[in-house]
């Protein structure tokens, strides 16, 4: 694709801290290369703001390879911007053309309070994982990988669920701010494997209890989560989570 430069108008949510009332601020950015990533464009703007003695825009980022789930940003009404199965850091400026206006907002959910500007507190996800999204293993030598046979289909399905990077786009896109896609990916991932079996029932009950406690909404299967997920986590995981929850609720002690 041919390289080009563009001038853009950005409307970015600025908020000093979690208690202050934020608002949009408009910035003009010039000479943006189509080969830059979206975050590099933000870097260019921040560099300018710093040189002008202004407060740079705070945003989350880490690996910039689309695998860590740190970057967020609700860009023109869609988590992670316009591209399908993509993270903000992997969004490139060739998605835009000269003269475009881009509105950048933080994830909006009661369970994800804004910390500053575009950064939200996603520790609710950590607490859900701490409630049961793990397996307990004894320490010692790693066992031989082939000692525990797993069907290929199950391994694939489990891996597809394990691809969740916990970015929170599902919550951001959901009209109910529900975290069901995230929780379902974590529960499916472990429920499909023999390693997850011993804690299977308590895991799902505890994780759902924590999810409700954190203030996420209830799932109404609108399917918005699936459409924006950068890792294409399927909503079939949500049905699986529901069946795991119902069966565990009925049969656990």
């Amino acid at each position: 694709m041919e390289h080009y430069s563009m001038n853009l108008t950005l409307k970015v949510w600025r908020q000093k801290n979690k208690d202050s009332k934020g608002d949009f601020e408009t910035y003009k950015v010039e000479n943006i290369s189509s080969e830059m990533s979206f975050l590099e464009m933000m870097d260019v703007l921040n560099d300018r703001l710093i040189r002008e003695g202004k407060e740079p825009i705070a945003f989350d980022h880490d690996c910039r390879e689309g695998i860590c789930g740190t970057c967020s940003m609700y860009i023109n009404g869609r988590p992670h911007g316009p591209w399908h199965a993509n993270t903000t850091c992997q969004l490139h400026m060739r998605a835009y053309k000269d003269g475009d206006t881009i509105v950048v907002e933080p994830w909006r959910a009661k369970a994800f309070p804004v910390v500053k500007d575009l950064i939200v507190d996603r520790s609710a996800f950590d607490r859900i994982i701490q409630a049961g999204g793990y397996i307990s293993v004894n320490t010692g030598n790693a066992v031989d990988a082939n000692s525990l046979p797993i069907e290929k289909e199950k391994a694939d399905e489990s891996f597809a669920a394990a691809a969740c990077i916990g970015c929170g786009a599902c919550v951001a896109a959901c009209k109910n701010s529900s975290a069901m896609l995230f929780v379902s990916a974590k529960v499916s991932h472990l429920a499909l494997l023999p390693q997850g079996a011993p804690e299977r029932k308590t895991r799902v009950l505890n994780m759902i209890a924590q999810m409700d406690k954190e203030g996420f909404g209830a799932c109404t299967n609108t399917q918005a989560c699936e459409s924006v997920c950068p890792k294409e986590i399927s909503m079939t995981n949500i049905a699986k989570l529901n069946s795991e929850y119902i069966i565990s609720g009925l049969t656990s002690r």
Binding site: G77, E105, S178
Partner: peptide
């Protein structure tokens, strides 16, 4: 309950790009 889970609305909403209108 679900409406109370998002206190600040988005300036630009996802709308029909994410889900069909009747599902919402």
């Amino acid at each position: 309950q679900n409406r109370s889970r998002r206190q600040t609305a988005y300036a630009v909403s996802l709308g029909n790009r994410g889900s069909k209108w009747y599902r919402r």
